[in-house]
Structures are given as C-alpha cells and as structure tokens.
C-alpha cells in the first residue's frame, strides 16, 4: 500500500542552511533515502521551498485566479514530501519515525494513505 508523507516544520525550525549542523541534517536524509531505497519502499520525494514562494491556483467565476502564497495559513509549513510503499500503517510509521525531521524533533510527518483506484 502506498502512503504519502507530508513533512512539516515550524518556520525557523532546524539548522540554518549551509551550517555544519545543516550538513549533518542533510546527510541524515541521505542516509534515510539510501536505507529506504535498499528496502524497496521509497517511491519518490522532494524537499520543497518555503511557502513565501508558493503560488496557489484556483478557478473562480470561470477564470483562473492566482494567489501569492500557500492554500492555507498554518503554524507549520510543508517542507517536503515522500511517497513510500509499505505493507501496512505500522511499517509506514516505523519508517516515518526514522526520518530526521521527526527523529531530531524539528517537526512532524502526516501520513496519508493514498487512494488506490485499481481496487474497486
């Protein structure tokens, strides 16, 4: 079963980009990616830029309307996503718990099971 991880963190949480701490942090993601890749569960994922650089697209009155920013103001920002394939939620929780954003306490992961249309 496929699950989407939505990684979130409060603005300013985690090390400053380019610092030694940040290098360790990035390396920890690298290690996780490698381990998850070897286990065959990793199907995709990217970090995303901060919400200030987001653009929200919506159709209103037949016209495409753009909004400069994220679709919803939240205390925690989306910082990235993964797509994993696991046997069940327990396995998905186990892998999510090991991701640096959770493991190092900078933020959280929302696990969303994906919809599988092939199984009517």
């Amino acid at each position: 079963m496929k699950y989407t991880y939505i990684l979130v963190a409060k603005p300013g949480a985690g090390p400053v980009q380019g610092s030694d701490e940040w290098k360790d942090y990035a390396a920890a993601y690298g290690a996780w990616n490698e381990e998850a890749g070897k286990a065959g569960i990793l199907k995709g994922g990217e970090p995303v830029q901060p919400p200030e650089r987001a653009t929200t697209v919506r159709k209103h009155g037949g016209e495409i309307k753009l909004h400069d920013g994220p679709f919803a103001e939240t205390k925690e920002n989306i910082i990235g996503w993964y797509l994993v394939e696991c046997d069940d939620l327990d396995e998905a929780i186990k892998w999510a718990s090991k991701l640096p954003v959770v493991d190092l306490g900078f933020g959280a992961i929302e696990i969303r099971p994906t919809v599988d249309f092939s199984k009517g």
Partner: peptide
Amino acid sequence: AKRKIRGARIP
C-alpha cells in the same frame, strides 16, 4: 474508526 483501520491499513 473502522474506516480508518481499513483505509490506512492498520494491521
């Protein structure tokens, strides 16, 4: 709760 168990595949 039962839908979550099934949908999220809680084993």
